[in-house]
Simulated assay, not measured.
Amino acid sequence: MELTDQLGREIINRLSKYINVPINLMNPQGKIVASTDPARVGQSHGGAIAVIETTEPQFITDEDVIHYANVKPGANLPIFHRDKLAGVVGLTGPPDQVTQAAGMTQGSVEIALEQIYIQRQAFYQERQWNHWLQQLLNEEMDRDELIREASYTLRTDVNRTWQVLVFQAEEPFELAESLKSMFHHKDYLFILPYQDNMVIATILFPETSIFYPDNIRSRIGVGEPGFSIDGIRHSFKQACEAIELSDRKCEPIYSRDLQMERLLHNVDPRTFLEVTEAYQNRLQHLEKIYHTTLTHFFKQDMKMNRTAEVLHIHRNTLIYRLDQLTRKVGLDPRHFKDAVILQTILLHN
């Protein structure tokens, strides 16, 4: 990474808060790209050119100024990034007074360059993964191309078994960063914000446990493990469906625990309408108390005593409500076949 105008300005803004002498940053061609003195930006710096030619520091005194173009007394030191010359840093002032500060500035600039480099690499890689994810979830994806791109561009072997976790939260970017730090000990393919309120995490199976930040309220859907590209797609859809089909919060919702719900939810729409339309209309006109009773009755596996206890009502009151519901809707939730139809209606509403 070389010192450019943009990088130079960013570094000067950081350093000028702590160093009270004039600072110049020159690129590998000796041009001043950033300075605490804006008037000097764009000039060719003779001292920097000498540093570039020799890769050695140049200390310029009042007597030396006449030997260099566009210079003032000061210390000019080479900047290296990953063993390559990235530019030159110069501090203005008597060399014996600014040399120590120049050395500290040199180290600070090299550290800043590395930090910026790492940040940019991470940002660039995340953009690549986002593009790859968009292609993956596209209905017209090219499976072979995605595998090649993962291998050659992202340097990842996707031909393994993965499990997708979908997190639904108000602050997806903050959540994604928290998850990356929490999953650092696990092998994960990617952890990316997706759409407005979602984070997708694809981790290597088997996972031993699932953690998420306590300070961020989030719903978590967990898909079934799957192999390679198709497995990731299926696991993602299952994780999303798990969130859709369950009202649980603050704990993982596993797709494998919702097999009946998934089956009923994916019934053919036309068949569903033919069978349930009349019952749906009647159910919609009932008071809310009947919907609540029916929901809890199914959650408690159609157990009368447990349902009455959860609803804080007498068993006879529950029986009365179910009798009224049966009479008004035409389906008795205490009978298996009728219960299946009612449960299907609830899942589609």
Rank of each mutant, 00 (worst) to 15 (best):
I118C: 00
Y117G: 00
Y194R: 02
D257Q: 12
M104P: 00
M141N: 12
S44Q: 13
I232W: 01
N281A: 10
D257P: 06
L146T: 10
F173V: 14
A69F: 14
R14M: 10
S181C: 02
F297M: 06
I203L: 15
M104H: 09
A201P: 10
E63W: 11
H335Y: 15
A339F: 08
Y279E: 08
T105I: 06
I11Y: 05
L331P: 07
N215M: 05
T153W: 06
L258P: 10
L342C: 03
G93C: 04
K17R: 15
N27D: 15
V71I: 09
F205T: 12
P94D: 10
G8A: 11
T202Q: 04
I191F: 09
E277D: 12
P95I: 08
F272D: 03
P206I: 12
L322V: 11
L263D: 06
M260R: 05
I19W: 07
R219I: 11
L245N: 09
G47S: 01
W162E: 01
T156D: 02
L175S: 05
A48E: 03
E244Y: 14
I232M: 10
S218F: 05
H184P: 00
C240W: 05
H335I: 15
K72F: 11
F236E: 12
Q238V: 03
R282W: 05
L165H: 06
D301G: 06
P193T: 03
T292C: 00
V267I: 13
S178C: 05
R217D: 15
F211C: 03
A101C: 01
L189N: 07
K299L: 14
M1D: 11
E145W: 10
P57S: 02
A278S: 14
E261W: 03
I116M: 13
R14W: 04
S235V: 03
Y290C: 04
F211W: 05
L7F: 07
H184R: 12
D96I: 06
E309N: 07
T4H: 01
S228T: 13
I147Q: 12
D37A: 09
Q163S: 07
A102Q: 09
R282C: 02
E261N: 08
A101H: 08
N27L: 09
E177P: 00
H184S: 14
L85Q: 04
I253E: 02
L294S: 01
Y152S: 10
G46W: 08
L25F: 15
T344L: 09
E126N: 15
V340S: 02
E261T: 02
